[in-house]
Amino acid sequence: MQAYQVAELTPGLGADERREFRDRALSSARNPSQFTQLREIEGYGEARLSLIERYLLQGTPDASALAAREAVALSAQASQYAKAMEGRYVAALLLMRRVLLGTALVTGLLSVTSALRALLLWRSEMDRRARREARQREALSLASHELRRPLQSLLLASDLLRHAETQEQRTHLLALIEDGAAQLASRADLTRLNDLYLDVTLRPRAQDLRPLLERFAAPRVELSLPLEPLVWPVDGDRLRQIVENLVENALKYTDGPVEVALREVGSQPEVTVRDHGSGLSDTLHGQVFLPYDQGPRGLRGGQGLGLPLVRRYARAHGGDVTLAAAPGGGLQATVRLGQPAGTRAETQAAGGAGLLQARSDAG
């Protein structure tokens, strides 16, 4: 392009000679393969080799000037690219120097590369194994935490069964034992530990939520349930674990009664568990959902796993759990249920008919 521009400005040159210079420049512009890293160079600015070809084909003095200007700009972009590559090469050389100095006792660079690659693969495998073992420990810790209550219930019911005097008492205690055994089976399936406690795969079905909460009635637990069925797609076993953990925590934090309520808020179920203890500061409301955090004083005998599991199950149901100061003192945990994964599309497609039928059946 410079030669062609000089030819254009040189008096005495014939049209054929000028055309020859132009054809040389045009041939160069039409052969982008001779310019290595052209795409990368063009990425450093607006100049393009194709524009030079277009201007040359116009054959006018103004177009020739534009082509020359484009070539200068493209050359400047090439200089920027060269500087960038120079910095990379310098960094690469420095890195190579450090590697060579650090591996001076190794017989050859190829052996060093193989050793480093093997070391990286080993480290990666060790990291994967550590993460896998950590997940297994977490699943086993959560399973141990959740098996404690049904085991206690089984032991207590079996002990009482030995001293039962009437058939009615024995029937009631046998029902408690059957329920405890079912909960053990639900929470201790070794083939589903990840689905139960880590990745949380639910098995939801539409059901009345009131019977799920009625089992928590106790001398220190006051229930407030709606008169009409409140039907919602939930995994009953997981919802039971949610309420169990919240009630257990509330009982440990207060010597007074614990209030469990179920109501429908904005067409969605909401379960609240309220105690009358000393409560928590606002800054700790989120902290206690971290694994192994036991609150400001530490729960008596707690492991700090209950609330994190509650949040995991609540979010798997498409909802969440929050803590707030209760009116008049104490702490209130609120579990708002949404649509569990896998049930949204079915519910929308059915137009709610299935839930209405389930509500009618439960009534």
Rank of each mutant, 00 (worst) to 15 (best):
L190H: 10
S114D: 13
G352L: 12
V321A: 05
L337S: 00
V335W: 03
F21A: 06
L57M: 10
S33G: 11
T60G: 07
L119W: 14
R203H: 12
A206E: 08
A345V: 14
Q294M: 13
L323C: 04
E138W: 06
A358S: 10
T334M: 01
A47D: 03
Q169V: 03
F35V: 02
D320Y: 01
Q80N: 09
A333P: 06
K252Y: 06
A164P: 00
D127N: 13
P150E: 03
G352V: 02
G301L: 03
L239S: 03
Q136G: 09
S64N: 10
S50L: 03
A349L: 14
A65Y: 11
A7C: 08
G279T: 06
S27A: 10
L212R: 12
S27Q: 08
L151P: 01
R123G: 07
Y4P: 02
E146H: 15
G180I: 00
H163L: 12
L251M: 07
P150G: 02
A71Y: 00
L307E: 01
L140Y: 15
E42F: 05
L160G: 00
E178P: 00
R39I: 02
P211V: 03
L110M: 15
Q77W: 00
M85T: 08
L213W: 02
S114K: 15
T334V: 02
S281V: 04
S28H: 14
R312G: 04
A349N: 11
L262T: 00
Y44C: 13
Q2M: 11
A175F: 10
A333F: 01
Q58S: 07
V106G: 05
G298H: 13
L38F: 05
A67P: 01
E86K: 11
E259Y: 14
T201L: 14
L173H: 00
Y4S: 06
G354E: 07
L174K: 06
V234M: 06
Q357Y: 11
A73D: 04
E178T: 14
G328Q: 07
Y253D: 09
R98H: 09
V321T: 05
G236M: 08
A175G: 06
S360Y: 10
R123S: 08
